[in-house]
């Protein structure tokens, strides 16, 4: 665990010292900010406040920015030759994979934490002044939505990391994982595309969005969704470890 911590810390430092990561955070804030203001304008006078709404959009943006965070994790190291250094360090391969993943996830969490500002605004406008029939912000769905998006983010990062381990080219890794995540995202709407219902159902079960759009995002935590995301993360990390390990055998 010590080496996991060291590797995660290095990755995290890497994110915070690279201008790209700040640009990603900036873009995310612009996009979610826009989404938030549009949503706010839509709700005024017609709908109750919903803190989870902005997170639904955040989930969609994650599909595109998670690959930007993960594409370099292994591809860059393989190219720069530092992977050979890592693999001759007295650490297990799984520690390397886990450390990198945790580093990326922590950075993702930091970006996610930026959106807490919107929840603060919700709380402020629902509690600050007293007027009749003041709506209350339902905190429950907000908590579950954050948990869902956090797990969802972890899964997207784990998938992206696998692609980064498979290829030595960052751009290819980023492109592949973005495509994969986008397809998994669209899987939620498989029913209108795939003619065979059983297949559509199966595709939907595998899709990431299906495991939070009808549960976490509306204030329900289904244990199977937690198992799905955690299982997906663990499986991806396991396969990534195998792929990294395979470098030792393939030379």
């Amino acid at each position: 665990m010590r080496s996991v911590r060291i590797i995660a810390r290095r990755e995290l430092t890497q994110y915070f010292t690279s201008p790209i990561a700040y640009l990603v955070a900036f873009a995310i804030l612009m996009l979610t900010g826009w989404q938030f203001n549009v949503d706010l304008a839509r709700r005024v006078g017609t709908l109750p406040p919903d803190g989870a709404a902005v997170l639904g959009a955040f989930g969609f943006f994650t599909v595109f920015f998670a690959p930007l965070l993960t594409m370099r994790l292994f591809a860059e190291e393989a190219r720069e030759g530092t992977l050979e250094l890592m693999l001759t360090m007295p650490v297990r391969d799984s520690d390397i994979v886990l450390g990198k993943f945790i580093g990326a996830w922590l950075y993702f969490s930091a970006i996610l934490a930026l959106t807490l500002v919107y929840q603060g605004i919700w709380l402020a406008i629902t509690t600050a002044r007293a007027y009749e029939l003041r709506p209350e912000l339902d905190i429950g769905p907000v908590i579950s939505a954050y948990m869902g998006i956090w797990l969802f983010g972890g899964a997207t990062l784990a998938i992206g990391m696998l692609f980064s381990a498979i290829t030595e080219n960052q751009i290819v890794a980023g492109y592949l994982s973005m495509s994969a995540l986008f397809i998994l995202w669209l899987g939620d709407f498989s029913g209108s595309v795939i003619q065979n219902r059983a297949l559509a159902q199966a595709v939907r079960t595998l899709s990431l969005q299906a495991h939070y759009s009808t549960s976490f995002l509306i204030g329900v935590i289904r244990f199977e969704d937690v198992v799905f995301f955690v299982g997906l993360i663990v499986a991806m990390l396991f396969i990534t470890t195998r792929v990294v390990e395979s470098r030792r055998w393939r030379g």
């Binding site: 290095r10 720069e80 030759g81 050979e84 250094l85 001759t88 007295p90 650490v91």
Partner: peptide, 20 residues
């Protein structure tokens, strides 16, 4: 792991993190 702890290894391509 024990061997790796006792060995210092410099691969052919020098493994450096350029942003550190």
């Amino acid at each position: 792991l024990e061997v790796r702890r006792r060995v210092g290894y410099l691969p052919e391509t020098v493994p450096l993190y350029r942003d550190m």
